[in-house]
C-alpha cells in the first residue's frame, strides 16, 4: 500500500493502518476474484481473445435462464415467507416479553446455527424422508397406510430455505423493533388506532430499514444457497448455484461458470435494486 508512505501526519497513518485490513480484504478477496471471474467469462478458451459466447449461452439456452428465473422467484418467495413468519417472532421478542426470557427466546432462535448448515439439512432429511420420523409417526398413528415422501419437492426446498434464513430476518427486525419506543404504539392506540393500522402506519414504517435489510440478506442467502436446494430438492432442485458448481467442478468449464457467476451477481443486484425502488427505500438508509 503506497498510500502509507505518501501520508505524512501520524493521524493519517493511523487511519490508513486501520483501513488497511478492510482495503486488503476488499481488494484480495472481493475485487480481484471478481475481476478474474469477469476476465474468464469473457475469454475464449481455445483460440484466445475476447468473446460474449458464454453470456450468449445463458440467454440462448432456455434451460439456464429458466433455472435462474426459478431460483430468483423461489428466493423471493422464501424471502416473503421468512418475513411473514419472522416478523411476528421478532415483534414478540422485541415488544411482548421482557428481561431474561427475552434472552432465552433469542438464544433459541440461535441454537440451530450452532451446527453447520449441512447438519441442519441432514436433520430435515431425517425428519422428512419416506422412511423418516414424520412419515413413520403418521403411519404409526394410523393417518396413512404407507410411507409418504416429504422430501424432494419445491415445498421442502422452501421449508429449508425459510428455516436456514430465519435468524437473518429476525435479528435485524428485533433490533429495529427494539428501537421503537412503546410510547409510539401507545400513542397510536391513544389516538384511536387499532392493531392493524398501528402495525401498518407506525410499526412497519419504523421497522422498514430492518425489514429491507433482513429481506436483502435472506434473498441473497437463498439465491446463493447450494446445499439446501440440492439436498432437500433432490431431482427437482434446479438451483442456479448448482449450475455454477457443475460448470466449474464437473464440466471443467470455468469460462461458463464465471459467466454464470457474474450474471448471478448482476441479476441479483438488479433484483435488490428493483426491490428497493419499489418499496421506496434507499440502500444507504437501510444499512446506516
Amino acid at each position: 500500500m503506497s498510500t502509507i508512505s505518501r501520508s505524512r501526519s501520524p493521524i493519517k497513518l493511523g487511519m490508513w493502518l486501520l483501513l488497511a485490513p478492510l482495503c486488503l480484504w476488499l481488494l484480495l478477496l472481493i475485487i480481484l476474484p471478481h475481476l478474474e471471474l469477469l476476465t474468464y467469462s469473457l475469454s475464449a478458451p481455445d483460440e484466445g481473445g475476447f468473446t460474449f459466447e458464454f453470456y450468449g449461452e445463458f440467454f440462448g439456452e432456455s434451460l439456464y435462464w429458466r433455472t435462474f428465473l426459478r431460483t430468483a422467484v423461489m428466493s423471493i418467495l422464501a424471502t416473503i415467507l421468512t418475513l411473514l413468519i419472522g416478523f411476528p417472532v421478532a415483534f414478540f421478542i422485541a415488544k411482548m416479553i421482557k428481561g431474561r426470557s427475552k434472552g432465552i427466546l433469542f438464544a433459541m432462535c440461535l441454537i440451530p446455527f450452532w451446527v453447520s448448515e449441512l447438519v441442519r439439512t441432514f436433520g430435515w432429511m431425517i425428519l422428512l424422508r419416506e422412511s423418516g420420523v414424520i412419515s413413520t409417526a403418521l403411519q404409526w398413528l394410523g393417518f396413512i397406510d404407507s410411507g409418504v415422501e416429504l422430501l424432494y419437492t419445491d415445498a421442502t426446498i422452501m421449508l429449508g430455505l425459510v428455516y436456514s434464513a430465519m435468524l437473518f430476518m429476525v435479528v435485524p427486525l428485533v433490533s429495529t423493533l427494539d428501537s421503537l419506543d412503546d410510547s409510539y404504539i401507545e400513542a397510536g392506540y391513544d389516538l384511536g388506532g387499532n392493531n392493524w393500522n398501528i402495525l401498518r402506519e407506525i410499526v412497519i414504517p419504523h421497522a422498514m430499514p430492518g425489514i429491507v435489510s433482513g429481506c436483502i440478506i435472506v434473498f441473497m442467502l437463498s439465491l446463493g444457497n447450494y446445499l439446501t436446494p440440492v439436498l432437500l430438492g433432490g431431482k427437482d432442485s434446479l438451483w442456479f448455484t448448482e449450475q455454477i458448481y457443475t460448470q466449474f467442478i464437473t464440466r471443467f468449464n470455468w469460462e461458463q461458470g464465471s459467466a454464470f457467476g457474474i450474471l448471478l451477481l448482476i441479476l441479483s443486484s438488479l433484483i435488490v435494486w428493483l426491490g428497493l425502488k419499489v418499496t421506496g427505500q434507499s440502500f444507504t438508509k437501510t444499512m446506516g
Binding site: E61, Y64, T246
Partner: peptide, 9 residues
C-alpha cells in the same frame, strides 16, 4: 454436460 443439464431441468 448439456444433456445432463437438460435432464436435470
Amino acid at each position: 454436460g448439456k444433456i445432463l443439464d437438460r435432464v436435470n431441468a
